[in-house]
Simulated scan of single mutants.
Amino acid sequence: MRHGSIPGASGRVRPLTLLGAPVLHAPCAEVTDFGLDLGRLVEDMFATMYAAQGWGLAANQIGVGLRVFVYDCPDDEDVRHLGHVVNPRVVDLDGVTVRGPEGCLSLPGLEAATPRYDHAVVEGVTVKGDPVRVHGTGYFARCLQHESDHLDGGVYTDHVTGWRRRRVLRQVARARWS
């Protein structure tokens, strides 16, 4: 990604991987090659996320089992957060747990109240290998946790319990894409 360029402008939209695909349910591999292919992947991820009108996207959501996610997400004060993290790891989760609406591009059309911490910190590197530390509060903290979960082979429905979980799993079973 060139400095000053619009993320995704040079990327191509890739097909989304839907719930049930093995790549969504397996931990992703660490990125070890920081060459042009990684830059193209990030550009494609931004293009795909914007085309699908999402707030974030993990690489395995387009079938690539690497530890990379992108985001363009507001926090609760409507401050925009835009970026990407390669080889992210959650280093801090705290604050109150908030049950809020959560959806996923890999489960199109579905949503469930999902408990998440209202503060999250993720560390990793950029496509050039430079260290990055991302702090999120409110909705953006939810986004950071959601995308990090994907890279560990999880989806938001793994956090939903009780009647909410039964309801969303019934919806998954009835979905046209499942």
Rank of each mutant, 00 (worst) to 15 (best):
G162A: 07
L107Y: 00
D149C: 09
A175I: 08
S5T: 13
L36I: 09
D149S: 09
V70S: 03
C73Y: 08
D149H: 11
C28A: 15
A113W: 00
L144K: 03
P108N: 05
I62K: 05
V134W: 08
A59Q: 10
L105F: 01
G109K: 02
E30V: 12
P7G: 10
L82H: 05
R40T: 02
C73A: 15
Y139V: 11
R133I: 07
G4A: 11
D92G: 05
R164I: 04
L18M: 05
V134G: 12
G11S: 13
V98Q: 05
T17R: 10
A173G: 11
V85F: 06
L151P: 00
L16K: 05
T126P: 04
L93T: 09
G65V: 02
G100D: 08
L24N: 09
G8P: 12
E43H: 07
P131Q: 10
R67A: 11
L110F: 01
P88S: 12
A52H: 10
T114E: 04
L151M: 07
A9V: 09
V155E: 06
L151D: 03
L144Y: 06
Q61H: 08
P7Y: 10
R164V: 05
L93C: 10
H25K: 09
R176L: 03
G8T: 08
R2K: 14
V98M: 03
L41K: 07
P115Y: 12
V98A: 01
R133C: 13
R170Y: 01
D130C: 02
M49R: 12
A141M: 07
Y50G: 03
V122K: 09
E77T: 01
C73H: 13
V68E: 08
P7T: 11
T157E: 04
S10G: 13
L144R: 03
F34L: 07
H3L: 13
H150E: 11
M1E: 06
R80I: 02
R164G: 08
R89A: 14
A9D: 13
V90R: 05
D158H: 15
G83S: 11
V90N: 00
R142F: 01
L66D: 04
I6G: 00
R142P: 00
V172F: 03
V31P: 01
G54Y: 01
V127Q: 04
E43Q: 15
T137E: 12
R40M: 01
V64D: 11
T114L: 02
V86L: 06
V79P: 00
D92P: 00
G11Y: 08
V125K: 08
F34H: 06
H159W: 15
G56F: 02
L36G: 10
T17Y: 08
G63Q: 04
G138A: 07
L110H: 00
H119D: 02
T137I: 07
M1C: 07
G20H: 11
L18K: 11
H159C: 03
M49S: 09
G56M: 08
V42R: 04
W55T: 14
G35S: 12
I62T: 14
R80L: 14
A29Q: 14
L107S: 00
A52E: 13
P7W: 09
V85I: 15
S178L: 04
P131M: 10
V96I: 05
G56K: 09
V172E: 12
W55A: 15
A173T: 04
T32S: 14
I6V: 15
G20Y: 06
V168F: 01
